[in-house]
Write a protein that binds this DNA or RNA. Sequence first.
DNA 1: AGTTAGATCGGCT
DNA 2: GCCGATCTAACTC
Length: 192
Amino acid sequence: MRRLERAFYERDTVVVAAELIGKILNLKQGTHLLSGIIVETEAYLGSEDPASHAHRGVTPRNRVMFGPAGFSYVYFTYGNHHCFNVVTESEHKPGAVLIRALEPLGGIDEMKKRRHVLALEDVASGPGKLTQAFGMTREHSGLDLTTSDLFLTEAQPNGTLRIKTSKRIGISRAKELPYRFYLLGNLCVSKT
DNA sequence: AGTTAGATCGGCT
DNA sequence: GCCGATCTAACTC
């Protein structure tokens, strides 16, 4: 399985969000490898997108969104949860794809333990759930996905993917934009 | 099955 | 001071 290279991320955010469906997210932790198939994403753009953290310019929190593509952006929200994003576009042009859900692949027992759940569809079927399953925090923000222990790889040849588009979930602004992508019928897609 | 509230804190208006 | 790219448990029907 080959790592996605920087050129993959250096493109239009909505295109990257759609193409990330079916790719594999990996985190190496010592001898363990946690991994999962990306089954749900959302695109967040720059100043033109009121729902994006980058909407009002650079801040200490969102600065990685304004940097080069192919880096991680992890932030803390609601006093409880972390969300994991992949930075897109070029330097000074902000953009990120929120990874909203995974179908667990490797290290499943480890992830179930962290999440205190038994069913596979409860492990990573939401943005806060998958960061908990992977043990991701702000420490994992700003990592280079092309060189670090946190990385994405090509999908396994699984045949044609049925990808569906919808409005983004859980936001109050720019609700109507069709920037959410998910695998049709997959059990690990987050519930609305 | 669907709705609501509470948790909990960092970021920015 | 307010609100958020969320999750879970509890409550109602």
